[in-house]
């Protein structure tokens, strides 16, 4: 995965979660499936999406919440 694809992937994850704030809770697994499909042409794998989620949560751009299952959200 090129740096450019990685940046696009991370942006796509954040904007998806932003778009659905208060509407839908995305489980990390949902994001992986969604992005794997969306970026399949750029050769993005499951592990790429997982590592993008890791960077986003490590840097605090996304946080984990819990309500019957774990989900990703924007920091409050």
């Amino acid at each position: 995965m090129t740096d450019e694809t990685k940046k696009k992937l991370e942006e796509a994850i954040v904007s998806l979660i932003k778009e659905y704030t208060n509407k839908k809770r995305f489980k990390p697994g949902d994001i992986v499936k969604e992005m794997e499909g969306k970026f399949s042409a750029s050769g993005v794998t499951k592990d790429d999406v997982k590592s993008a989620i890791r960077e986003l949560t490590d840097s605090g751009q996304l946080i984990y919440g819990y309500a019957g299952g774990s989900f990703l959200a924007l920091p409050e």
Binding site: T57, G60, Y64, A67, S70
Partner: peptide, 17 residues
Amino acid sequence: KHGGMVGVKGYGSGIVG
């Protein structure tokens, strides 16, 4: 009450809110 947005940075588990 359960759940919520509690945790430590970068971790999605380990804290039960």
